[in-house]
Design a protein around this nucleic acid. Structure first.
Lengths: 210, 210
DNA sequence: ATTATCTATAGATCTATAGATAATGC
DNA sequence: ATTATCTATAGATCTATAGATAATGC
C-alpha cells in the first residue's frame, strides 16, 4: 500500500523521532530495527526503505536528537545570551537525569558512539563542536585561550556528572553528584544569575531542583 | 574433562580478565558469551558453570576491572598521597584514551551501566564511591563541604573529558579536549607538582602527553 | 562421588533482502 | 510507471540448558 509523499515524509520523521528517543534510552545495541519500526507504527521493512541500514539510521537519529536537545540547553543560534548558571542548572537537573530519552545525546550515547561507524562518529563530533560553541559565550573568562579551555572543562564536567548521576544506584548520591557539580561550576557566578527563569518551556526546562 | 581446583580457579580468573577487557572495549552488548569464552580459551558452557549468567559475569567483571584500574589512578589504599596533578595527567593522557580495555571502567561503561541490572549498578556505585575516596585527599580545598563538591567536580570533569575525547572523530580536537580539561583542573596547582613522576609503571603510567 | 568442561541444541532475536501489493504521481 | 509499505524468510548470532565425558578429590 503506497502512501502520499507527505505521508512518507511524516513516516520517515516518525522513525527518526522513535530512534532518537529509543537509542538514548536503551543504547544503539539495546534496541532492534523491529522495535524502532513498531514505535513508529511501521514494519521494519519500511525502515530499511527509508534508511538502508541500522547504522545509517543511527547516524541520522543522533544528528536529529542533537538538533532538538541543543536549543534546550539555551545555547541556540539566536543572538540572545543565556547565563551560564541557567544552562548548568538546566543540564544538571533531576528532570534531565531522569529523561535520557529526551535529553543530551552526548551524555546518553557518546561512550557507545566511540565504538560506532564513521557516520555516527561524525555526528557526535559535530555535536560536541556545537555544544562548545553554544556554551562558550556564557563562560566568564577574559583571555580567549583560557575561555576555550574553561568551556571544554565546563562541558566535560556537566556530561561527566550527568553520566555519574545516572550510573549510580543510590538516589541520595545521585542527587549529591548533580548538586555538587553544579555548585562547583557556579562557585563564582554573580548572584543576579541565581533563579533566572528558563528560556524555553521544554521537558528539560523545569529543573526539578528545589 | 575435569581439571584441578587450582586450574579451575585460574580459568575463572581468566574469564574475568577477558570479560573486564572486552566489555570495556566493546560494551556489554557488543560482546557475546561465546567471544568471552574464546578469549579465555574455554567453551561458553564453562562460562555458565562459573558465573551462571552473562549479567552475573558482567557485575563481577566490573568489580574486577575496578579493583585493577583504581590503584593505577594513584588513589590506592596505601598511606602515600599522590598529588592531584599526577592523577589528572595520568587519567587525561592519550595512553589512557587509547586503551579503553585497560582503563577506567566508569568512563568506558557507566553510561551503559545505567541500563543494566541491580548487581552491575551496585558495582558501579561502589566504584564511584571508591574513586571519590581516592581523589578527595588530593583536592586542595580548606572547607570540608567545598572539598567534597570539588572532588565530585574533578571526577566528573575527568570522566566527561575522557569520554568526549574518545567519542570525537578528529584527533586534534580529541587531544585538545584532554589538554584543556587537564589545564583547567590544574590551573592553580602549585608549580612543584608539574612533572611529577608517575607512581606505578602500568599501562596507564606513562602519560603520552609531551 | 563429585565436578569442571565440552558438545549439541533449543529457542529467541536480530539485520537484511526479495518479492508482492496497492495507491500515488505523472 | 513509480514507489512506500508489508510479508516472508534467509542467515547469523546470542543466551541458556541438558547431558555426556573424564579426571580430580575423598
Amino acid at each position: 500500500m503506497r502512501v502520499t509523499k507527505e505521508k512518507a515524509a511524516e513516516n520517515r520523521e516518525r522513525i527518526l523521532q522513535a530512534a532518537a528517543a529509543l537509542f538514548r534510552e536503551k543504547g544503539f545495541e539495546g534496541v532492534g530495527v523491529d522495535a524502532l519500526a513498531a514505535a513508529a507504527c511501521l514494519s521494519h521493512g519500511s525502515v530499511y526503505s527509508h534508511f538502508g541500514s541500522k547504522e545509517a539510521l543511527a547516524a541520522e537519529a543522533v544528528a536529529h536528537a542533537l538538533a532538538q536537545s541543543l536549543p534546550q540547553l539555551g545555547g541556540g543560534a539566536d543572538g540572545e545570551t543565556v547565563p551560564l548558571a541557567t544552562m548548568v542548572r538546566r543540564y544538571l537537573s533531576r528532570t534531565h537525569r531522569d529523561d535520557p530519552g529526551g535529553g543530551c545525546v552526548i551524555a546518553a550515547l557518546a561512550a557507545e558512539g566511540a565504538r560506532q561507524g564513521e557516520a555516527v562518529r561524525a555526528a557526535f563530533t559535530e555535536g560536541v563542536r556545537r555544544m562548545l560553541g553554544g556554551l562558550a559565550p556564557a563562560v566568564p573568562e577574559d583571555d580567549a585561550t583560557a575561555r576555550e579551555d574553561a568551556t571544554i572543562a565546563v562541558l566535560a564536567t556537566m556530561i561527566g556528572a550527568l553520566i555519574l548521576s545516572r550510573a549510580v544506584d543510590d538516589p541520595a548520591l545521585s542527587d549529591h553528584i548533580l548538586r555538587a557539580a553544579g555548585a562547583h561550576l557556579l562557585r563564582d557566578a554573580p548572584a543576579e544569575e541565581v533563579g533566572t527563569v528558563p528560556r524555553v518551556q521544554s521537558k528539560m526546562g523545569s529543573d526539578g531542583n528545589p
